[in-house]
Design a protein around this nucleic acid. Structure first.
Length: 122
RNA sequence: CAAGACGGCCGGACAGCCGCACCGCAGCAUGACUGCGGCGAGGAAAGUCCGGGCAUCGGGGGAACAAGGCACCGGAUAACGUCCGGCUGGGGAGACCCAAGGGAAAGUGCCACAGAAAUAUACCGCCGAAGAUUCUUCGGUAAGGUUGAAAAGGCGAGGUAAGAGCUCACCGCGGCGGUGGUAACAUCGCCGGUCCAGGUAAACCCUGUCUGAUGCAAGACCAAGUUAGGGGCGUUAAGGUGUAUUUGCUCUUUUAUAAAGUAAAUGCAAACCAAACGAUACGGAGUGUUCCUCCUCCGCUCCAGAGGUAGGUCGCGACGAGCCGUUUAGCAAUAAACGGCCAAGAUGAAUGGCUGUCGGUUUGGGCUUGCCCAAAUUACAGAACCCGGCUUAUAGGCCGUCUUGUUUU
């Protein structure tokens, strides 16, 4: 599974309007579109750190830790065609890294089950 | 050795695993590709407070006004509100530090409370005279007391009824002159006793001086979708043009006609022009009517892709008021010469994540007194067009110069 980075504002807005899962350390939002035949092995991820978290160097650190955690989690657990948005929380910069990875895995699995339910409903 | 002043510098190191942006090279599977190599945050990158470069807009040149900044003197600089060296005032035992430091006799405002009185005065006093009997009235005085941040020069002597720049010396203040200094200013001499006179201009204000506006989200280029736009054919209304006739008028020539020009009316035209800016008609809307106002104004077909949005490329990477070193000039800021160097470039925004070892600091314990062990802690903070400054944040550490005190020689 290949992971690419979201860069367009409209992708973030779409993810915010569809699915959501909250755990200690991170909030995950997601949107889902059926993948093209050419790109079955692709998912997308974007990172957000608001000014509430702190000054610039703190927000940068939050995004880097989320990026490092996503590298451990997404290639194994992501659903093709999904667009995940990871939002940093007040304690993301300070949490133990292994714990953060574990929590992120829980959140991604939660989102994936929501995606499956939605697909079955269709 | 202790306490302190000033200036400069550093602001973790190494290893392992897994990664990121950009650049270069190579590969073929030619892409949201793979591999290798290079390179990758700060002293403040921060605040966005000044000064510039650069860009666009405006502007013929100059002046004035408004608004805002600045304000002892000289120098440095591309420039500055920055820096350097001085001066003056203030603080400190000293090294040294602090100052928004022009004008208060151009004008206006404000100066609480207290106090008799704050641009003016006499409460208590002191002195004299008169009355009277220990008080009253009149006058003199501002040395003493009281209030206050401040009582109108200070201090000493003379003087006097008591006093007073009333007089004198010194200091201060003002004026003139000499000397030193580029200057701010310093210093010396002479003169001045109604020496008339507080503070505040980070209050208005006055004087001098500087400033065009907007900031890389500037700006330049490419440019989806969509629209504006252009051509052809057909249809015909008002209108224009043309032409014919009649009538009037004008000019030239003339006896007159003719001819020419021009205006109006009428007729003709399947000859041509004319299609939306305006006007007219029809239609619609605004209260039934009128006026007025507004809106709409043919059909078919072909071409085209302007401007600009999304998006992209450039601007944009130390070729520059560049950085490092040496020498020379200068007290210094800095300048010149010579030699060397080319160093991050993202844009939902790379420069990292995790682990271990070693450091630094603090605390506790052990003793062999400078080592060992344990725990905690290891800052402020992340480039965003680029430079010069300022300001603010900052765990901990290093170096140099100087001052004061103590001890020893």
């Amino acid at each position: 599974m290949k992971v690419f980075t979201l860069k367009k504002r409209r992708d973030f807005l779409k993810a915010a309007s569809e699915l959501k899962a909250v755990v200690n350390g991170v909030v995950v939002q997601a949107a889902f579109t059926l993948p093209d035949n050419n790109n079955e092995d692709i998912c997308f991820v974007g990172y957000t750190a608001t000014k509430k978290l702190g000054k610039a160097h703190i927000r940068n650190r939050v995004k880097r830790r989320l990026r490092a955690a996503a590298q451990n989690v997404l290639p194994l657990n992501a659903v093709a065609g999904a667009k995940y948005v990871l939002i940093g929380r007040h304690n993301t910069a300070d949490l133990n890294f292994a714990y953060l990875v574990k929590k992120l895995t829980e959140a991604i699995k939660d989102i994936n089950s929501q995606i499956n339910m939605k697909n079955e409903a269709k």
